[in-house]
Nucleic acid binder design. Structure first.
Lengths: 160, 160
DNA sequence: CTTGGTGCAAACATTTTGCAGCACA
DNA sequence: TGTGCTGCAAAATGTTTGCACCAAG
């Protein structure tokens, strides 16, 4: 799909953002992206995005469904998956793969090219920023005549 | 599972290795690991490992099945999956996730913590070495009292 | 004989899709 | 009145599992 992606924000404003600072702009971005494709900003889509922003972490489709249910919103699985695809296609949400069984997702604003600390024993996952990876990444690409579109770095750790 | 993992080799001997230099030791490692668990080194398992070594690249289970078929060996899907798990558990093969649809695998000897260049347009995947990542990774872990077990770095690129 | 291995087919789990009905311009 | 959206249930997909039979010590 080709919804218009939002630009990366500078690292400075992606840290310690207040939710209220974020919800509105992201909704606006989503709404605009949808409009450009002749699609609609429906209540279901709004609730899904709101819930993701509110949760602000790594989640699975099922979990998102539960969160929605908890809030009293009943949205079907199909709609959740369809909306996740839309959100991905305009770079509001990104898919994170580190487990065969289920796709994980997270908000992507300003965090493209995230680093994940995956606790091999507990399954816990932490997201951190490693800006220096961008330089490494871009150097590699440049030397090969390629252009980096994004990256993912995952570190598997244990507690010892 | 707890088959005994083989140690990482130094970067120097993982480059330009001849297949014959590799096949034999890896088979031996596998055989020993199996024996320690009271498991058997069967013709099917041998053929699977041989085929993986011969192919020496990133592959999917299906692809491996085809390769085996091409060589005139008929091994069942179930056995392929079961053997891949065994090979993973003794660190001869590693699973690589970058695509929801299918698990990819590759030989892991000396290459733990690989970097993948994933061509977003063609789907082509290239494996490269970025030893400097290890220092970054270990620094992060150390500062948090964690121990790095491995890492994965994936760069999504386009041709421009 | 006992243990483990194989192939097959059935089971599984997540994700996708087809379709009928709905809502809004 | 047409376009897109939803929910449901069915389909699709990659992987795992149960089981009957086989092989080797």
């Amino acid at each position: 799909m080709g919804l218009e992606p939002i630009k990366d924000r500078s690292p400075s404003d992606s840290s310690n953002v207040q939710q209220l600072d974020i919800i509105e702009p992201l909704c606006a971005v989503f709404r605009r992206a949808l409009k450009e494709e002749g699609l609609k900003y429906t209540p279901e889509r709004a609730r899904i995005l709101d819930t993701i922003i509110e949760f602000d972490g790594l989640f699975e489709a099922d979990q998102l469904l539960d969160l929605l249910k908890t809030k009293g919103h009943s949205v079907s699985k199909a709609t959740v998956y369809r909306t996740l695809k839309l959100l991905e296609s305009c770079s509001i949400v990104q898919q994170v793969l580190f487990d065969r069984d289920q796709s994980h997702y997270q908000l992507a604003f300003g965090k493209r090219g995230n680093t994940l600390l995956i606790h091999a024993d507990t399954g816990e996952v932490e997201t951190i920023e490693l800006p220096e990876l961008i330089a490494i990444r871009d150097a590699i690409c440049k030397s090969r005549g390629l252009k980096a579109q994004g990256h993912k770095f995952q570190i598997f750790v244990t507690n010892a």
